[in-house]
Computed example of a mutant assay.
Amino acid sequence: MNDSVDESPLTDNIPDHSAAASELRMATFRLARRLRAQRAVDTMSDGQFAVLAALTVHGAHTLGQLADRERVTAPSMNRTVSLLEGAGYITRIPDAVDRRRVSIDLTDYGRTIVDETVRRRDAFLEESLAALTPDERETLARAALIMRKVADK
């Protein structure tokens, strides 16, 4: 009689959750890496795309607001914004009341880049999901809700 138990590292039967946490971390990072590779502009860094995505979702920001949102220093964000502006993805808009204040917003070209990147990433996931069984897709749908719950902590 074999006393060994074949358990998944992601089960509640493991009192020490370190193996499950490690497995989840590695799988999440690997999928995130594959998704990041699906982009409209190969030369754009993840940080640069994050700025475009933030502007898409949250609208125009000042440099300081963008730096806070992305958790970087203002000088670092200024370099990123300057690169994105030079490439035509964003524009700086002077405040009509306070000329010292400048808002940063997407150009139409920047919005197109975000839309195309999102389309490519969704297409990658749709194709990947289509290759799975219905049970696997159902499991991933439930896992997505749980992962969002963990991320929102």
Rank of each mutant, 00 (worst) to 15 (best):
D68L: 15
R69S: 14
E70A: 13
E70W: 07
E70G: 10
R71G: 08
R71F: 09
R71I: 09
A74K: 07
P75H: 03
S76C: 14
S76I: 09
M77Q: 06
N78H: 14
N78K: 13
R79T: 11
T80H: 14
V81P: 00
V81I: 15
V81W: 00
S82Q: 14
L84R: 00
L84H: 02
E85S: 14
G86Y: 04
G86M: 08
G86T: 09
A87F: 09
G88W: 04
Y89G: 00
P94D: 04
P94Q: 05
D95A: 04
D95E: 06
D95N: 11
D95I: 04
V97L: 12
V97P: 06
D98I: 08
D98P: 04
D98Y: 11
R101N: 09
S103C: 07
I104R: 00
T107W: 02
T107C: 03
D108S: 14
Y109I: 11
Y109P: 04
Y109R: 12
Y109M: 12
Y109T: 14
G110A: 02
R111I: 06
I113D: 01
V114C: 02
V114K: 00
D115C: 10
E116N: 12
T117K: 01
T117F: 01
V118N: 05
R119N: 11
R120M: 10
R121K: 08
R121P: 02
A123T: 12
A123K: 10
